[in-house]
């Protein structure tokens, strides 16, 4: 009974505020949010799960009902478009830009604004590798010691462990364009990337792999991105740009890709208040990292992590829900 009471009290309080709110809302004749649940998709990385829970709990504070559903992070845009899920909290430019743009073209999905965060996805190595290959993080230094990254399946050339093919990266094109002595091997999942990283660390073997930020792995395995020739817009389409005049993709990935929110185009009408809040929501890189840390390092469950984050950061979100 003891443990139950607070939660009931909270629920009661919620009902009271809800009633009060609806009364006050009715007087101002504002449109009301539908009582149908807002469906929030969660994927298989923790920052996204916690962030989705944070937003979900915010919506619940506003009196909406919320439901979470786990989906594939690429296929989710089709579901948003059809209204099966209501929004998407993390649209990474690099990873999901293509799927998002395709869904935009088909219609049914809207851009709900950017987070105040930048994303970066590129070749990356854990710190200890710097000692094995002097001159890092410069890409030419990496190329100079490519033999150290060789594995049985790549023969004499070094191995770059890329993400799954469906992430649609252009690592092979870059290797060709820059004339690097590396072979791209695609892991089948993010788990495979981390498993290889963990094993390499254990053995003290050199490894260079695909990674991104913000990401929990930074907290567990400190490391750095390889510095490729500076990104210029159009480097992926115009051969003239970049050091190699005859090839595209001869430069780094954009170091400050967007991180967007997306929503079903019916959301603004069905849950106007929630949609207004969604548009205001913006997380920064440190905030996202903190959310991931609560789960990955402090071992909290995502729901609890979200609650904790909300408790600690009331000043951040209080302006969003009014």
């Amino acid at each position: 009974m003891k443990a139950k009471q607070p939660s009931r009290a909270v629920r009661l309080a919620q009902v009271c505020t809800l009633v009060a709110a609806s009364v006050s809302l009715a007087s101002t004749a504002s449109a009301q949010d539908s009582s149908d649940p807002i469906v929030i998709p969660i994927h298989n990385w923790n920052s996204q799960i916690v962030m989705s829970n944070v937003v979900g709990q915010l919506f619940e504070k506003m009196g909406n009902s919320v439901e979470y559903v786990s989906t594939d992070s690429q296929a989710v845009y089709e579901s948003v478009r059809l209204g099966d899920v209501t929004l998407e909290m993390e649209v990474w430019e690099g990873a999901f830009g293509a799927a998002f743009r395709e869904a935009l073209d088909k219609g049914g999905i809207v851009d709900a604004g950017d987070h105040n965060a930048v994303t970066r996805e590129d070749w990356w190595y854990p710190d200890y590798v710097a000692e094995l290959c002097p001159g890092l993080p410069d890409w030419e230094a990496l190329n100079a010691c490519s033999a150290k990254f060789a594995t049985p399946e790549t023969g004499d050339s070094g191995r770059f462990l890329g993400g799954p093919v469906d992430w649609l990266k252009h690592d092979q094109e870059r290797v060709d364009a820059l004339g690097m002595d590396f072979t791209v091997v695609n892991a089948g999942s993010a788990s495979a990337l981390w498993a290889e990283l963990a094993a390499a660390k254990k053995r003290g073997e050199p490894i260079v792999l695909f990674n991104w930020t913000p990401n929990f792995i930074e907290a567990v395995y400190p490391g750095s991105f390889i510095e490729f020739p500076t990104f210029e817009a159009g480097c992926d389409t115009d051969p003239a740009l970049g050091p190699n005049p005859d090839a595209t993709y001869d430069c780094a990935n954009p170091p400050n890709g967007y991180l967007k929110k997306a929503a079903w185009d019916g959301m603004a009408e069905k849950w106007p208040a929630a949609y207004a809040t969604l548009e205001k929501i913006s997380f920064t890189n440190p905030q996202i990292a903190e959310m991931a840390k609560l789960v990955d390092v402090d071992e909290l469950e995502p729901e609890d992590a979200a609650t904790e984050w909300l408790e600690n950061n009331e000043d951040v979100w209080s302006s969003w829900i009014n």
Binding site: D72, Q74, P164, D166, S189
Partner: peptide
Amino acid sequence: IAAFIGTQDLGQEMQRALSST
């Protein structure tokens, strides 16, 4: 399922087909 390790066979393509529905 081993496509989640990283293979170049039908499984890898299957994974692609799933993520692009």
